[in-house]
Amino acid sequence: MVEQLQKHIPAKGRPSKLSIEDQILLCLSYWREYRTLFHVATSYGVSEPTASRIVRHVEIA
């Protein structure tokens, strides 16, 4: 999963606060545990919109 997601990371722009592995874990915990984005975001120390963007990015990749 990490290799597939690395192919879709843009070369430009601001680097993500979370590592690729943490982004995948955030998305998997959102899907598996049916937690709200607010609770997942607070667990990983990011904002709710950031968690939403990460989930969408992982789903697309």
Rank of each mutant, 00 (worst) to 15 (best):
V58E: 01
L18F: 10
R56Y: 12
M1D: 06
R53Y: 14
E3H: 04
V55T: 03
I54Y: 01
P15Y: 07
V58H: 04
R35K: 15
E59L: 05
I54S: 00
A11L: 13
S52P: 00
T50R: 08
S43R: 13
Y34I: 10
R32S: 11
I24A: 01
L28T: 12
G13H: 08
D22N: 11
S16M: 09
Y44D: 06
R14K: 15
P49F: 12
L25T: 14
F38Y: 15
K17T: 14
A41Q: 10
L26F: 07
P15W: 09
A51D: 03
Q4T: 08
P15M: 08
I9G: 00
A11C: 00
I60N: 00
S43V: 13
F38K: 10
R14F: 09
S47T: 15
S47Q: 05
R32F: 12
A41E: 12
R53H: 10
K17Y: 11
F38Q: 08
V40P: 01
M1Q: 07
Y30S: 02
K12Q: 11
P49C: 11
H57K: 08
H57Y: 04
S47G: 11
S16L: 10
E3M: 04
E21L: 07
S47Y: 08
P49N: 05
I20C: 00
E48F: 06
R14W: 09
A51E: 07
S29V: 14
L18R: 02
E3T: 05
K12S: 13
R14G: 04
E33T: 09
Q6E: 12
S47M: 07
H8I: 10
I60Y: 06
P10D: 06
R53Q: 08
E33S: 09
R35D: 13
I60R: 00
V46I: 15
H8Q: 05
L5K: 02
S16I: 07
E59N: 01
P15V: 15
G13I: 11
R53M: 10
R53G: 03
I9T: 03
